[in-house]
Design a protein around this nucleic acid. Structure first.
Lengths: 207, 207
DNA sequence: TCCAGGTGTGTACAAGTGTTCACTGATGTG
DNA sequence: CACATCAGTGAACACTTGTACACACCTGGA
């Protein structure tokens, strides 16, 4: 009787994805979420779920797509700040950290999905990371910072960089969101990792 | 009527932990396992579960303890093979990879637990990794390979090494267990990561 | 205008869930 | 030997779960 019914197309769909994300943000693991639980959190009747998703895995996949958008936006912003090579690393890390803070649930979901039970979600996340790595390689080539490295070695360096940053994710998500002190420590430490890697890259002899 | 009842103390307890691990090995996520499901897999009546664990989180914690044993054994074996500094890295990585292959479900569980929903499990795994890192620092000091680094920088290097290896876990678990080719690639790539890091460490200027 | 299709709702049901209870038998200690 | 304790069992409970069905409404194109 008091139903409004489709004010905006995809409104309930968004509510459901947001609800799942909120539950993840509250500490639940995505793999343990149920349809009823998500619809309850979204304030929607369970049957509505099937209008938009076939099952929870499907919802997870669509979440990864949105996650992709967040990551692209982050990458673009990182590139914009990559003016001088001097503070390039520390500012890139800072951008990453602030995006994690701003989209905590999303990155929580991503960290879970890396070892999740849906192969498709794993694939999607891995390919997202590969994309990151290859774009980073392009940028470094363009900035002529790595002329002494061949392609294979450059890719290795970039892979390691992406991994080092990605592995700070559990650290970031582990500390309280508003613990600025710990967050600073992680930011600083991750930056040092990158510096170490680049010292290695600078002294690396290809072939 | 056909019950045997306590042949060995802790027999059912082991069966339950093994059952949970088997389900994880079969692709399920630990967070999505239920008590009935685990007891069914173990061939035990649901009530028996409560004789040994308070809930699934409790079982998870006890699994982490066993995981600790596996990791310690691995570390000991790695140390034993650390004779000549030449092949130190490639052989350490090889030891790691072979242990992952031999205890796939355990490491699957570990990878899941890092971003799992039980804070206690996360803590346990993180402290396990810290322990690894500090032991590695000790070894490097003893071998006098890093005399030019101060303690803080040495710890950073060791942290990064452990992270680089740990981050190859998703890769290893992602490929089919008997895909020797892919496995070799991962082993090789991880070794190169470590070499890069050590080139960085060798040229790192403390202070 | 009408009507097809997308979206939201309420009801229903079978199957599965966590947990409690009272029981039974084996085991080690006094 | 007797007996308290431990570790196993089956039946039962109240509840949740995924999914199906029939219906109601709104909206856009013919």
């Amino acid at each position: 009787m008091t139903q409004k019914q489709r004010r905006k197309p995809g409104e309930t769909r968004d509510k459901l994805m947001r609800a799942a994300l909120d539950l993840v943000g509250k500490g639940r693991h995505f793999a343990s979420l149920g349809i009823r639980e998500v619809t309850r959190q979204a304030g929607v009747v369970p049957t509505s779920f099937y209008r938009h998703f076939r099952n929870m895995d499907d919802l997870g996949l669509q979440l990864v797509d949105e996650l992709g958008l967040v990551l692209r936006r982050m990458m673009r912003e990182t590139r914009a700040n990559a003016s001088q090579a001097e503070k390039l690393m520390s500012e890139s890390v800072a951008t990453f950290v602030s995006h994690v803070q701003a989209n905590r649930s999303f990155f929580l979901f991503m960290a879970q999905g890396m070892a999740g039970e849906s192969r498709a979600v794993q694939d999607a996340i891995r390919s997202e990371m590969r994309f990151f790595s290859s774009e980073l390689a392009n940028d470094l080539r363009r900035l002529r910072l790595v002329d002494h490295l061949n392609d294979s070695d450059l890719n290795m360096v970039c892979d390691l960089v992406v991994r080092a940053v990605a592995f700070s994710l559990p650290d970031l998500l582990w500390v309280s969101p508003d613990d600025g002190y710990q967050t600073d420590l992680i930011r600083e430490q991750t930056t040092r990792y990158l510096q170490l890697i680049f010292v290695g890259a600078a002294n690396w002899k290809s072939q």
